[in-house]
């Protein structure tokens, strides 16, 4: 049986409902909250600040350091708090997704810390985390070339879909999940992972769907930033 209709009634290339907010954590230099469907990510940026231990410092340019963490109550079954193999990996890919956009030449020997906390998870957490982190970095005033947007695309049954939720990821007849992060101005891809099986042709088509969705996401991100600083314009 093929996958003919999505469980929540969305079109195949439609994302879940998105909410974005900037400036949610007062004590951070920059922060943002990003919600897509039931997935909620909060990102906080601290720095640029001194980096210790000293041997990690780079006198040429500053360093970006990302930390991904899922809160114990974010999923149905409690997950053990603290770093895990998975969170370490996602922290690393988040860092690599964001680092082509930030320009830390002006902050030698310093570090910019990004903390991504998932407070509610319903698939697509790393993409939500990247979107939140990009907004938080902009809010912190870190020089950036572009605002990264990320979305997961994939194949559920035999259909290509955008923004899978948990029930689709667990589809009995097999589902493939491919998170993609895109720099919208240049169309470059800074994150591409694949969990499952897809044909080369399908991947190309899925990437195009992701690109379209990311442009839409980017608009929402920019709007959220504008909203915080609205009083400051003319």
């Amino acid at each position: 049986m093929s996958y003919t209709k999505r469980k929540d009634g969305r079109k195949f290339d439609e994302m879940r409902k998105i909410k974005a907010e900037v400036g949610v954590i007062k004590n951070a230099n920059g922060s943002a909250k990003f919600q897509i469907g039931d997935t909620i990510a909060i990102a906080a940026v601290y720095g640029p600040r001194n980096l210790y231990p000293k041997f990690l410092q780079n006198p040429e340019e500053g360093k970006l350091r990302c930390n991904y963490n899922m809160l114990s109550f974010s999923v149905d079954e409690r997950i053990r708090p603290g770093p895990s193999r998975r969170s370490k990996e996602i922290g690393l890919v988040t860092e690599r997704a964001l680092s082509p956009t930030v320009n830390l030449k002006e902050f030698p020997n310093a570090v910019v810390d990004v903390f991504v906390e998932i407070i509610q998870a319903d698939a697509g957490t790393r993409c939500a985390g990247i979107c939140a982190a990009a907004m938080a970095l902009a809010d912190a005033g870190i020089p950036m070339k572009d605002l990264v947007s990320a979305v997961s695309v994939g194949k559920v049954g035999d259909k290509l879909v955008v923004d899978l939720d948990k029930s689709e990821e667990d589809y009995e007849e097999g589902a493939t999940d491919m998170p993609v992060a895109i720099l919208p101005r240049s169309d470059e891809i800074s994150l591409l992972q694949l969990d499952g099986e897809m044909e080369a042709k399908e991947i190309i088509k899925a990437l195009e769907m992701a690109k379209k969705a990311c442009l839409e996401l980017n608009k929402i991100q920019k709007e959220a930033i504008r909203k915080k600083y609205k009083g400051e314009g003319k």
């Binding site: 956009t101 020089p143 720099l183 504008r226 600083y229 314009g233």
Partner: peptide
């Protein structure tokens, strides 16, 4: 002039 922009805007 004097309008707000966000990173990455031309």
């Amino acid at each position: 002039n004097k309008e707000m922009v966000v990173p990455g805007e031309v």
